[in-house]
Simulated assay, not measured.
Amino acid sequence: MKTLQDKKAILCDMDGVLYHGNRLLPGAKEFIEWIKKEKKKILFLTNSSDRTPVELQQKLRRLGIEVEPKNFYTSAIATAQFLKKQCPQGSVYIIGGAGLVHALYEAGFSVNDVNPNYVVIGETKDYDFDKVEKAINLVLAGAKLIGTNPDTKDRIGNGFTPGTGALIAPIEKVTGCQAYFLGKPNPFTMSQAMKKLNAKKEDTIIIGDRMDTDIIGGMETGIETVLLLSGVTTQSTLKQFAYHPDYIFQGLIDFVKFCTQEGETPNVFQYNRFSFIPLSG
Rank of each mutant, 00 (worst) to 15 (best):
Asp209Cys: 10
Ile32Glu: 09
Pro185Tyr: 10
Thr79Leu: 03
Val120Trp: 03
Asn272Thr: 08
Asp203Ala: 04
Ser91Arg: 12
Ile32Met: 15
Gly157Lys: 13
Asn22Gln: 13
Val120His: 01
Asp212Leu: 08
Ile205Met: 12
Gln261Lys: 15
Thr221Cys: 09
Phe109Ile: 06
Lys131Gly: 12
Asn198Thr: 01
Pro187Arg: 02
Lys201Phe: 04
Ala103Met: 02
Gly64Lys: 12
Ile207Val: 15
Lys40Cys: 04
Lys134Arg: 15
Ile95Ser: 07
Pro245Glu: 07
Asn71Met: 13
Lys84Val: 01
Ala80Arg: 02
Ile10Lys: 09
Ala242His: 12
Asp154Arg: 09
Gln270Arg: 15
Leu140Ser: 12
Thr204Arg: 07
Ser230Cys: 10
Gly90Pro: 06
His244Glu: 00
Leu227Pro: 06
Pro162Arg: 08
Val256Ile: 06
Glu224Asn: 13
Ala135Gly: 03
Lys196His: 06
Val256Pro: 04
Lys239Gln: 15
Phe241Asp: 10
Pro26Leu: 03
Ala107Trp: 05
Asp130Gly: 04
Ile253Pro: 00
Ser191Gln: 14
Ile65Pro: 09
Phe160Trp: 13
Asn71Thr: 03
Asp203Ser: 11
Lys144Val: 04
Pro150Glu: 06
His102Thr: 15
Met194Phe: 11
Lys131Phe: 05
Ile253Phe: 02
Val174Ile: 14
Gly157Tyr: 13
Leu140Phe: 12
Val54Trp: 10
Ala242Val: 01
Phe82Glu: 05
Lys131Ala: 10
Tyr271Thr: 01
Leu227Ile: 08
Phe82Ala: 06
Gln5Ile: 08
Leu229Gly: 07
Ile136Asp: 00
Pro53Gly: 03
Thr189Ile: 01
Pro266Met: 08
Asp254Tyr: 04
Arg23Ala: 14
Thr233Asp: 00
Arg61Leu: 15
Ala179Gly: 07
Leu197Ala: 03
Gly16Met: 12
Pro150Asn: 11
Ala98Leu: 00
Ile223Gln: 01
Gly64Gln: 11
Gln235Ala: 12
Ile168Asn: 06
Ala199Met: 09
Phe72Met: 07
Ile32Ala: 10
Cys177Glu: 14
Gln240Trp: 00
Leu18Thr: 05
Ala199Val: 11
Gln178Ser: 10
Leu228Met: 05
Lys173Phe: 15
Val256Cys: 04
Asp126Thr: 12
Gln57Phe: 00
